[in-house]
Design a binder for these strands. Structure first.
Length: 951
RNA sequence: GCAGGUGUACCCGAGUGGUCAAAGGGGUCGGGCUCAAGAUCCGAUGCAUAGUGCUUCGCAGGUUCGAAUCCUGCCACCUGCACCA
């Protein structure tokens, strides 16, 4: 049977929308589930990466609705940002219209996929009814002292014409366009995220983020414990403050290194013979590109500044250098150099002939004067301190002792340093939230009063490719405004906010998206956000950007009393990459555009092979979701995506796999059709099918709860189908049973393939929509083992007989036509029962097994003694590779044996079926000894594993 | 260099110390159905073998009665950070 996916899917989509099936409101009497995907930037149409993201989310949202939870599942658009501004320039329009055109397009794509969003909560961050709350909260942050405007060296992207935050610079390149960033000194707006450094770091221990995301955030925050030490400059009032994580090596300091940009450098060497060298080094570092820097930094280079500093503990005088490897922005931009115990300083000291001194040994009794061939960077007892009270102590105790000594003399103190910087918020672009600040010549910088919000982006701006800079700056009516404080002429801030600000709280806005008096109602947010968003799905690329900003924002708003939760996301799932084949040259280890398929490598000329590579425009190995939906329907695409790989794993696009999933959908449709057309004829298989349903249901629920969607789909779309097929093959044909099976099965189909599931539900004639249906509690399946074991017994016999048939064919000239099955003799079954019983009583077979066996009556039968012994061992201890059967039998099998299953009778009752499966015309079955021992198989016969011979 | 991760059959991918020659899918091969094709259904897919045997889960060792699973070392690949003091 084929079905019209387009008709079925769009019909149900309309019904779901018309009935408001997915609309959810806060209701403290119900358990909630907040399912959220990282909302998209609306860039025209939806791509396969989106499809994967949302198909995972939608399946989970639908699953949790089935489980009776109140599910919040919203969708909106992160619609501020440069692409719309650039597009507007290109076409001479306004970013606002570009954005809304794109939103309409991507939303239509999403709707066609059947995603179950509560569209009442739609939001676009570039709409003033969203970004006015950005401004409102900015004022709140400002009042709480978390906003700061300061002059700072910042990362500037020439291409994007704006500054970037630290998090947005990857390998010295802009995260968006890939162009190298340059350093500029500018007055900029910052959010003081570093106020939350410790909390951001420590809370990572308690949230369910993937390990790699946590590692990246820890790395990014980069907390290190150490000491701040002041080194006075000889013959000067100047003091060099240095941060070190190794105060225990302070007596090994033989020089001080400043970053070339350090303000003291110029001061120290001004007017001396050393000044020229320093200027040269400083200028060299300033113009270094990333590429050059990596190359140059292999070479540690420095210049002496002509002055000396005093070690505050030892009083020793050491030279001061400027070094190219010292980073100005970390710590104080000054390093106390300990060449004996820091490899970098060691290399530097070697090069410039500076003393290398050992002040730590590895073990207590090591020679304290042993020469160092490389820096010893580990911890060990202090030596050669030159001061009393330090030699011999090691590690943290040593650090603490040095810090205590420093604090006593006021020369330093314990200090924690972070790599994390404050969040540089301002952008010199138009398409973002205007920063609600006003610059007044007499009052300084004044916040826009809350009552005057929003500061709206003007719509009467024309964009063209010729213009550069921020159009806001030249928009007179925007810029010129009276000062809210003195009423005099003033100018508006024309910088706008980083778009990551928008996404730092949208998950809270979604909870109460239509609130027009506050950003959101606290109670509503506390309901939906309790424990964080229950499932947050998105790409790993935001590990240290969005995910860190959002965590900061949630904590800051919590402290402002806007919400009570401190962490925004409970479980985070980062979906894996979507790959597709691309031409690949093994020789050059390079991938090429799909246009090169079948050709030769453009660089080395060798024939190109194929490799799976991340789907993307640059390789052209993309697949259009729209095309696939048009061809196979949304359900097939969704099934393919979910079945292709578990959410976190990478997955490969495959046309043949997609088609296979389409066939699977058709098979399911056929099966459901056959189930609906059943006669009423109860039989032995009904009980089995019911049992299988119960087993599958409980596993399914378990794996779905843990977001193992692939396993879930395997059960719902593959396992259930094969069970149904087996039922029918075995003669199952009962209307009542089939209906019960469908009532259990169809809801399981809904998370991945909601449209066909809803269609089936409708065909069943159940009241109400499946989309709104909640599943009843699971029925008890504790008594299902025997009936499942019975079927498993037959399947095992058929499987092993099939294998044997192949062998048998080689040993006989004639066509095989008959099977003789000899079931285990009564004494073997009796032994098996005995072993099972003893095992349940905790009997120790290793110690007492043989004695027990010899005490049995049957053991007196000398003719059988060898076989009895073998059987006993196979039952109890097993062999080196195989455990005894009493350990490997399932509960059902044990029950079968213990209750004395009539193997002969079972096989005889199903002989026709077995004969068909084995393609033989007749089956003979009897217990060993009650007929001829055909082929000597009596010996092989074992409980549940009869001897089988082909004739 | 540091951190996180990965390595399973032709391919993709499951895999709690024993029920693992290893789920499921793709592909391939064979069969049933069909006038035929497609769809669907059934079966096979490491080697050997009239059944309990051998070899295999990146490589090499080890722990264990028993290892794909635990430990150690190494190799390869991916991701992130990187003279961060």
């Amino acid at each position: 049977m084929s079905y019209d996916a387009q008709e079925v899917e769009t019909r149900w989509q309309k019904i779901w929308a018309d009935t408001g099936a997915f609309e959810a409101d806060a209701d403290p009497s119900k358990p909630k589930f907040y399912c959220l995907e990282m909302f998209p930037y609306p860039s025209g149409s939806m791509h396969m990466g989106h499809v994967r993201n949302y198909s995972i989310g939608d399946a989970m949202a639908r699953f949790h609705r089935l489980m009776g939870r109140n599910v919040l599942y919203p969708m909106g658009y992160d619609s501020f940002g440069m692409p719309a501004e650039n597009a507007a320039k290109k076409e001479g329009g306004h970013p606002h219209s570009v954005t809304h055109r794109n939103i309409a397009s991507i939303r239509a794509d999403q709707e066609r996929m059947g995603y179950s969003y509560d569209w009442r909560r739609f939001l676009a961050t570039s709409d003033v009814d969203y970004y006015k709350w950005n401004q409102e909260m900015f004022l709140m942050l400002n009042e709480r002292g978390l906003v700061e405007r300061r002059m700072a060296p910042v990362n500037w992207c020439v291409d994007c014409d704006t500054v970037l935050a630290n998090e947005q610079v990857k390998n010295n390149r802009c995260w968006r366009c890939g162009l190298e960033v340059v350093q500029k000194d500018m007055a900029q707006w910052f959010l003081r995220m570093t106020e939350y450094s410790d909390e951001l770091l420590d809370d990572l221990d308690n949230i369910a983020f993937p390990e790699n995301v946590k590692a990246m955030q820890r790395n990014w925050i980069g907390r290190s414990h150490g000491a701040h030490i002041d080194f006075p400059v000889s013959n000067s009032k100047a003091v060099i403050g240095a941060f070190t994580t190794r105060p225990d090596t302070i007596f090994g300091v033989t020089f001080i290194t400043l970053s070339p940009e350090h303000p003291l450098c110029g001061e120290l060497c001004a007017g001396t013979e050393w000044e020229a060298n320093w200027r040269e080094l400083r200028d060299e570092c300033a113009r270094m590109s990333e590429f050059e820097r990596i190359n140059m930094l292999k070479e540690k280079k420095g210049v002496f500044l002509g002055r000396h500093a005093v070690n505050p503990l030892s009083g020793e005088v050491v030279p001061i250098y400027a070094g190219n490897f010292v980073v100005a922005s970390y710590g104080t931009g000054a390093v106390m150099a300990v060449p004996g115990h820091d490899q970098r300083d060691y290399d530097f000291a070697k090069r410039y002939g500076i003393e290398i001194r050992r002040v730590l040994v590895e073990k207590a009794d090591d020679d304290s004067n042993a020469p160092l061939n490389e820096a010893f960077e580990g911890y060990g007892p202090m030596v050669n301190s030159g001061c009393d009270g330090f030699d011999g102590i090691a590690g943290d105790a040593a650090k603490d002792a040095v810090i205590a000594a420093l604090e006593k003399t006021g020369a330093g103190h314990g200090k924690v340093e972070y790599r994390l910087k404050d969040w540089l918020l301002s952008r010199q672009r138009f398409w973002g939230t205007p920063i609600p600040m006003i610059h007044c010549g007499s009052c300084g910088t004044v916040p826009v009063p809350s009552a005057d919000l929003p500061v709206e982006l003007p719509l009467d701006v024309t964009f063209s490719e010729e213009q550069s800079g921020n159009p806001l700056a030249s928009h007179d009516t925007f810029v010129n405004t009276p000062c809210p404080s003195c009423g005099g002429a003033a100018r508006r801030e024309t910088d706008t906010m980083d778009t990551f600000y928008d996404s730092s709280w949208y998950f809270m806005r979604f909870c109460d998206a239509n609130n027009d008096s506050t950003p959101f109602n606290r109670e509503i947010v506390d309901y939906w956000m309790d424990g964080g968003v229950d499932l947050y799905i998105g790409g790993i690329e935001h590990a240290v950007m969005h995910l860190l900003y959002a965590r900061f924002f949630t904590k800051a708003t919590r402290d402002a009393g806007l919400n009570e939760i401190g962490e925004p996301f409970g479980t985070l799932v980062c979906q894996g990459m979507l790959n597709a084949p691309a031409p690949f040259c093994t020789n050059c280890n390079a991938e090429y555009h799909v246009d090169n398929f079948g050709g030769d490598c453009p660089s080395c000329g060798k024939p190109l092979g194929t490799r799976s590579a991340k789907m993307g425009k640059s390789l052209g190995n993309t697949v259009s979701p729209g095309d696939m939906v048009g061809k196979f329907g949304a359900d097939t695409v969704r099934l393919f995506i979910l079945f292709g790989a578990n959410p976190e794993a990478g997955m490969d696009w495959s046309d043949s796999a997609l088609e296979a999933n389409y066939r699977q959908i058709n098979a399911v449709i056929d099966a459901v059709g056959s189930a609906q057309a059943m006669e009423s004829s109860p039989g032995i298989m009904d009980e089995w099918l019911n049992a299988r349903l119960r087993v599958n249901q409980s596993i399914w629920r378990e794996v779905m709860e843990s977001v193992s969607l692939r396993e879930g789909v395997m059960i719902s779309h593959f396992g259930m189908l094969s069970d149904w097929n087996w039922y029918r093959r075995r003669g199952g044909c009962d209307r009542e049973t089939a209906r019960a099976f469908l009532e259990g099965w169809i809801p399981m189909l809904a998370p991945a393939t909601p449209h066909i599931a809803e269609e089936f539900w409708h065909q069943l004639g159940v009241q109400g929509l499946l989309a709104e249906h909640a599943l009843p509690d699971i029925t008890d399946s504790s008594n299902d083992a025997p009936v499942l074991a019975r079927e498993a017994y037959l399947r095992n016999i058929i499987t092993s007989a099939r294998n044997l048939r192949g062998l048998a064919e080689r040993h006989t000239e004639k066509e095989i036509s008959q099977v003789v099955i000899q079931t285990a003799p009564a004494w073997k079954s009796a032994l098996a029962r005995d072993a099972i019983r003893l095992e349940s009583e905790g009997f120790d077979f290793k110690v007492e097994g043989q004695t027990h066996l010899q005490s049995l009556d049957i053991f007196q039968n000398e003719a059988l003694r060898g076989e009895i012994f073998q059987t006993w061992m196979a039952l109890t201890t097993g062999s080196k590779k195989k455990r005894g059967r009493i350990h490997t039998w399932s509960d059902g099998e044990r029950a079968q044996i213990f209750s004395g299953i009539d193997e002969t009778g079972t096989i005889a009752a199903n002989s026709e079926f077995i004969a068909n499966a084995l393609e033989v015309s007749s089956i003979e079955v009897y217990p060993v000894g009650e007929g001829e021992d055909i082929g000597g198989k009596a010996q092989v016969a074992f409980p549940l594993e009869p001897g089988i011979s082909f004739l």
